Simulated assay, not measured.
Amino acid sequence: MRVLGFGTYERAKHPRVGILLDGLRQRGHDVAEANRPLGLSTAERVTMLQQPWRLPLLVLRLLARWTSLAVASRRTARSHRPDVVIVGYLGHFDVVLARLLFPRTPIVLDHLIFAADTAQDRGARGLRVRLLGLLDRLALACCDLAVVDTEEHRALLPRRIRGLVVPVGATSEWYAAGHDASQDASPSAVFFGLFTPLQGAPVIAEAVRSARQRLPELQVTMVGTGQDYPEARRILADDEAVTWVDWVDPADLPGLVARHDVCLGIFGDSHKARRVVPNKVYEGLAAGCAVITSDTPPQRRALGDDGVLVPPADSRALADALVAIARDRETLQRARAACAAKGASFRAERVVEPLEAALRSLAA
Rank of each mutant, 00 (worst) to 15 (best):
Q183T: 07
D238V: 01
Q213W: 04
R274C: 15
L264I: 06
A241K: 10
P230A: 07
G200K: 01
T225F: 08
I235G: 11
H271R: 13
W247Q: 08
A189V: 05
E206L: 03
S210M: 01
E206G: 06
T243D: 14
G200V: 06
F195V: 04
A176Q: 12
D180Q: 12
A185C: 04
V220Q: 15
G265R: 14
D246S: 12
H179S: 07
Q227I: 01
P187D: 00
L256H: 00
K280E: 11
F267N: 14
W244A: 02
V276W: 15
V208Q: 10
S182Q: 03
F267W: 11
F191D: 00
R275A: 15
R274Q: 15
R275D: 12
F195P: 01
D239S: 06
A251I: 07
G268N: 08
I204G: 01
D228I: 10
F192L: 02
A273R: 13
V276F: 14
L215K: 04
G169A: 14
A177K: 06
A201Y: 00
M222T: 00
A241E: 11
V245T: 13
P250S: 07
V248L: 00
N279C: 10
D238P: 06
V245Y: 04
S186D: 02
P278L: 09
A177D: 07
S210K: 03
V220C: 10
L253P: 08
T196V: 03
W247K: 08
D180L: 06
A241I: 06
A181L: 04
P230T: 08
I266T: 14
